[in-house]
Each structure stands twice: as C-alpha cells, then as structure tokens.
Nucleic acid binder design. Sequence first.
DNA 1: AGAAATTTGTCCGTATGTATC
DNA 2: AGATACATACGGACAAATTTC
Lengths: 139, 139
Amino acid sequence: MPTPHYGQPRYRTIADELKQRIERGAIPPGAVLPTESVLTAEFRASRGTIRQAISVLRDEGFVTTEHGRGTYANARTCNCNTDRCKGTKERVNEVAADAGLAALFEVEVGTPLIESESISRTGARVEMVVRLYRLPRHD
Amino acid sequence: MPTPHYGQPRYRTIADELKQRIERGAIPPGAVLPTESVLTAEFRASRGTIRQAISVLRDEGFVTTEHGRGTYANARTCNCNTDRCKGTKERVNEVAADAGLAALFEVEVGTPLIESESISRTGARVEMVVRLYRLPRHD
DNA sequence: AGAAATTTGTCCGTATGTATC
DNA sequence: AGATACATACGGACAAATTTC
C-alpha cells in the first residue's frame, strides 16, 4: 500500500487524537500514555510515526517523556475556554547579578539589577519568557 | 555496520559541525545550506540522520527550512551597520531550564530551552540585556 | 503553459544501543 | 539477568512544493 497523506500528515492526526484524550481526561494528568507498541497497533502506524506524534505533544507541553519509563500526561492548569488568551504578564523586581550579567554590565557579582520578566502564553501553555535586565536608576 | 552511538549521537555531531560553519561565516546568513542529499554524501549518514541534525539547528533558530526550496542560514548577529542596530548583538544557544523556568514551562529542571540573548550597548556601556526563553519547537 | 528535475516532507520496516525497572 | 521502553540509525518509497528548462 502506498502512503497517501492528503490534508494532515498522519502523525499530526494521531497527535490531535491523543491531545483530545488528555484534554477530555481519558488520560488523566500523571498517567502513562499507551506504550509506543500499543499505539502502533491501535493507529496502524509505524513506531517512527507514533514517536513523531508524541514528539509534537512533548513540544506543546502536553506530555513529558522519561527514558526507559514512558510518556506521562501533564497537568493542564488554565481552563480559559474562551479564545486564545494570548495574554502577557509582566513582573518587575530586583535581582542580584550573576557572573554572566555582572561581566556584561561590568559590575560586581551580586550588584542589584532590575529584572523585568514577561511571560506570554497561548492558552495554558507558556509560549515565551522574556527577561530584561538593566541597571537601576538609568533607564 | 552496526549503529553504535557512544557519547554524542551522530546527528548531534553533524548539527554541531554545521553550526560552526554558520558561526564561522562559511555559510553566510541567507545562504542555502547544502541539500540533504549532499550532506548525506558528505557525512555518510542516512537522510533521516541528516534531517534530524537540521531539525536541531531549526529548533535552535540557526536555520529556516522551506518545503521544496531548501534550508537557509539565519542572520543571528545583526550585521547591519546602521546606527540603529549598531551595538546590538544576539546570541542563540541551548540552556538547561532552571527551577523558575522549569515551573513556567511545566517541564523538568534541566530540560533544554532555547535562549536568545540580546545585548544592546550605547558606546562601550551595556544598556540592556534581554533574554528570551522558549521551548524547542517542531519534532 | 507544461514537463522534468530538485528538494524537502511524510511514512514504513528493521536493527541495534541505552536506560530503567 | 531479563523485560520493557525509549533513542539512534539505516534504507527505501512516495508526496508535495519549488525551480528550471
């Protein structure tokens, strides 16, 4: 049989299906996902394809894989069932300069710096964390 | 030939080699990387392994791939000599998630993250340091 | 415009190494 | 030590997007 993949690639279809199971609670947080061989049998896909699907879930933060043990479903915290709450939160505080920052700013290690941390999310998933450092009183 | 992978896996070794070429300027920003088949011949690795290596570069922001076209090296250091960009340098590398970041991204401590550090200066003095963290994307 | 060549994308099957229990 | 499961690597096949002729 050839390998037709119209529309979505197979590994994405499988990833979406698994994603739904996790979101619906069919696979509760902390539970182990079906093993690769089980998924292979269920979806009639090769291990490579199954692994690619799981890789998608891992990158999107739905699951965590541990070598030699298995793949676990992660707890999804945010329940905003609205649109994509592409919200960013910002937090500003004072931190001590570590070695790397101290060298850059040419100050001593431990010198207070202003740290502004922005966290952008899409849904429950943290998309990006941006940390901006600068010296106090000199904007 | 069996498939031993002592120490670093092959695809990482290849990725590092390509990374160096980009950093050294052997592959200038915007240039097309050797095609997969060329790399296959050069490194005597299978196409899958080559693709895995390129995937690493993609995740780390070194290159961009376009279907049917090729893989391009990204500009990672701002080379433009305009006054605007002068004094701004960007560095992208992989770091291990510390406790704070791990909690935000809901991953384990030590999970590789992509860190993009931008340093803006006015003259010799460092004005600001921005560190952007994100999870590796794609497979 | 159309066909061929090039290049990346997806998928399969298999084999072997490595980590964990 | 054995069983299980993930990680790496190979080779082959076909699909899809782009470029070239």
